[in-house]
């Protein structure tokens, strides 16, 4: 099974190829501004570096967030469209699950919390529990005021974020310094995404729905003409 994975949920994007015999190739880039439009030229370069043709790829994978909407939309549209000719498979996984799995291994912890900025003075978070399964641990994403985050998280649980450099000082300035942060921005990587997809597929687990994890409804005002 040859997998091409795209992960664009954060300011650092990545694309990776994952093949048999533990073959993997990844490129990572910073995208402080813009919409990760550079991912496309990087995909061609990765393929030629691996000596693969497009027809060799069996599965196109994408991270579905939570994260930057434009990046998620680009990743999901990219994976699904690339898969059309030849009717290849598409597999989508929460980017938070990829991040949490990596953090769980790094900290040797069975439970990990993933936190991000939901704007509008809110944070989003999800708690992953890997004690029963390394691959099937979907978190329920929740939103919370920053002042309430500590109370919502299990005591002492490691907390990981791709936005640590901004969130940690902001929370500390509010006196919220009781979190067990994994220090530094940590980004979900396409290589880890491909590995998780491979494990889930081997276990017969279905893909998540290929739409971004949206933390807000599309409209916050009441409709002017509500349906009868």
């Amino acid at each position: 099974m040859k997998i091409l994975a795209v992960e664009l949920s954060a300011f650092q994007g990545s694309a990776a190829l994952s093949g048999p015999d533990d073959f993997s190739l990844q490129e990572v880039w910073d995208q402080e501004r813009g919409r990760h439009e550079g991912v496309f030229s990087r995909l061609s370069a990765l393929l030629s570096q691996a000596g693969w043709g497009w027809g060799d790829v069996d599965c196109f994978a994408a991270g579905r967030g939570p994260g930057i909407y434009s990046g998620l939309r680009t990743a999901l549209t990219c994976a699904q469209t690339l898969a059309l000719p030849g009717e290849k498979s598409v597999y989508c996984v929460s980017s938070g699950a990829v991040l949490a799995r990596g953090a769980s291994r790094e900290m040797n912890a069975s439970r990990v919390a993933v936190v991000g900025d939901a704007r509008r003075s809110l944070l989003w978070y999800g708690v992953f529990d890997f004690s029963l399964s390394e691959t099937d641990s979907p978190a329920e994403w929740q939103m919370v005021k920053s002042s309430e985050l500590c109370a919502r998280l299990p005591a002492g649980v490691p907390v990981v974020s791709s936005d640590w450099e901004r969130l940690e000082p902001n929370l500390a300035a509010q006196g919220l310094d009781g979190l067990n942060w994994i220090r530094g921005n940590r980004y979900p990587r396409a290589r880890d995404l491909a590995a998780l997809v491979r494990l889930r597929m081997e276990q017969g687990l279905p893909s998540e729905k290929p739409v971004p994890v949206y933390m807000h409804p599309p409209v916050l005002i009441a409709p002017r003409f509500p349906p009868a």
Binding site: R35, E37, F40, L43, S44, W54, Y69, S70, R73, T74, T77, C78, T81, L82, L84, P85
Partner: peptide, 17 residues
Amino acid sequence: SSLLVGVAAGKALALRL
């Protein structure tokens, strides 16, 4: 945001084909 989706699909398809 709407243009972005179409352009992403267009690029992906052009690459793939």
